[in-house]
Design a protein around this nucleic acid. Structure first.
Length: 421
RNA sequence: GGAGAGAUGGCCGAGUGGUCGAAGGCGCACGCCUGGAAAGUGUGUGUAUGCCAAAAGCGUACCAAGGGUUCGAAUCCCUUUCUCUCCGCCA
């Protein structure tokens, strides 16, 4: 969430920059400022009141000690009054605080200056495109390949759980395991610390990374215990550092983790969700960095290049997009999307999203570091998929078809133990 | 799941109604001592927020979380959460 002090000092700029995200902020921002000024005033009154009450309480203590009971009792009368005022001020304060808070969480993160305005995904900028794309082929879509080689069973998933929860079988299951291991090993080589994370998180964690409030609908919720199934390992990985103060020399903090990801994907139907294109449960290796504010964009570039390198090693044609204001997420300041090309489906599939959240998450997480002057300052957080499996698998299956079967990318062979499906 | 004990600053740990933001120790920072270091020694060392141009200073809140009793709560009461021990169950 945005910092109140920043909104106060840069009101016009906040409104202007949020317009790049097609967000009309004026009304909310003005309301926040008005309420916050009011809040501050009431808080000051309350604190004066409390200071006075504290002082009297001390005096009463002293009077009792010296045996001056009657004067002590007189003073008690004064405090009764004070308590009444205190109660009222407190009530007003908590109302205003929650109102300000409610408005504040509605404001998206400010887009970075490089983010162009735009309405939809069509307005995203293509930064780079790489790899050979044939004009036309007779390659089968992956759902047919999956059935032909008996490696992914969608119907079985349907029977046991529901649509969007496939079973991976035989060489399909081994390919999953190989990809996860490959991605984790690569991340380790790059200096990321590996974690195995809880697959469910509490409410505070959901709030910390920005899934809550408002995006409850995206997550599976376990009502009995009030826990949420994670939509990405970003949530537990980033929340490791909730409520912490790091030392400047600890930065950057780099961590990675594999997890199954669970997404309700309410409202998605049709051909986009065919096969592996959109699932309720899928596997992903995530990378997260916590970085000094002055270096976060340099880091974003590094992360983007790292993920591009992974795709290159897998031998898939891909492109990198810088998302426009209209397509960028609520919490992100700037995002690169990675898309690999499926030659059977003849379309680009998003396989990674790499974002700089600047201090937006850190502010909610209360994740800070001590700077040179020993002051605490919010860090910047970044994360990216490196990578999400299903669409990578779809592209491997669709692009690598040969008369002898599906060719496994060379880098994966040590992990799979076979080079053909 | 049952019974009991507990939760205090970066860590350990004292504190059962007032002078407690909290003794003492460890750690850390700076200084003295030293040729240099260790030892010794001195000083300092939480977070948030407000007043202030800023610093200094001062106010307020925070001793698991929330509520209550009281003029006054780390300390008493209630609720919740978590941890530990024993028992039960169990991959």
């Amino acid at each position: 969430m945005l910092q109140l002090s920043y909104i106060h000092e840069n009101t016009a700029e906040v409104i202007k920059r949020l317009a790049v995200k097609n967000f009309k902020a004026e009304e909310i921002v003005n309301s926040i400022i008005e309420k916050d000024i009011n809040r501050k005033k009431i808080k000051q009154d309350l604190e004066k009141n409390l200071a006075y009450a504290n002082q009297i309480a001390k005096e009463i203590g002293a009077l009792y000690k010296s045996g001056n009971i009657s004067e002590a009792n007189e003073k008690k009368e004064i405090t009764k009054q004070l308590k009444e005022t205190e109660k009222q001020l407190n009530q007003q304060l908590s109302v205003l605080e929650s109102e300000v808070d409610q408005l504040l969480v509605q404001l998206p993160n400010l887009p970075y200056h490089l983010v162009k305005p735009g309405k939809t995904a069509d307005d995203n900028e293509i930064i780079l495109q790489e790899g050979y794309i044939p004009e036309s082929t007779n390659n089968l879509p992956h759902w047919e390949i999956a059935a032909k080689y008996d490696i992914i069973d969608f119907e079985l998933g349907n029977k046991v759980t529901g649509s969007g929860f496939p079973f991976y079988k035989n060489k399909g299951a081994k390919l999953q395991r190989a990809l996860v291991s490959f991605f984790l090993d690569e991340a380790s080589k790059e200096g990321y610390n590996e974690y195995e994370v809880p697959l469910v998180v509490n409410e505070a964690s959901g709030y910390g990374t920005g899934q809550l409030p408002d995006k409850e609908g995206q997550m599976y919720h376990i009502g009995l215990d009030n826990l949420y199934m994670i939509p990405t390992a970003e949530v537990p990985l980033t929340n490791i550092f909730r409520d912490t103060i790091l030392r400047a020399e600890d930065l950057p903090v780099k961590c990675t983790g594999y997890s199954a990801c669970f997404r309700r994907e309410a409202g998605s139907y049709g051909k986009d969700v065919r096969g592996l294109n959109r699932l309720h449960q899928f596997d992903k290796v995530e990378i997260v960095q916590i970085q000094h504010p002055s270096k976060s964009y340099e880091t974003l570039e590094n992360m983007k290049d790292y993920v591009a390198g992974l795709i290159r090693k897998l031998g898939l044609p891909f492109r990198i997009l810088r998302l426009c204001g209209g397509d960028i997420s609520f919490t992100s300041a700037m995002t690169y999307d990675m898309e690999t090309y499926s030659i059977a489906q003849k379309k680009w599939l998003e396989v990674s999203s790499i974002s700089n959240f600047e201090s937006f998450q850190a502010n909610r997480l209360k994740l800070r570091f001590r700077d040179g002057n020993n002051k605490t300052q919010l860090v910047h957080t970044l994360n990216g998929s490196a990578l999400a499996l299903p669409r990578i698998v779809a592209c491997i299956l669709e692009n690598n078809q040969t008369p002898d079967g599906i060719k496994i990318p060379e880098v994966l062979v040590p992990y799979t133990g076979f080079d053909m499906i």
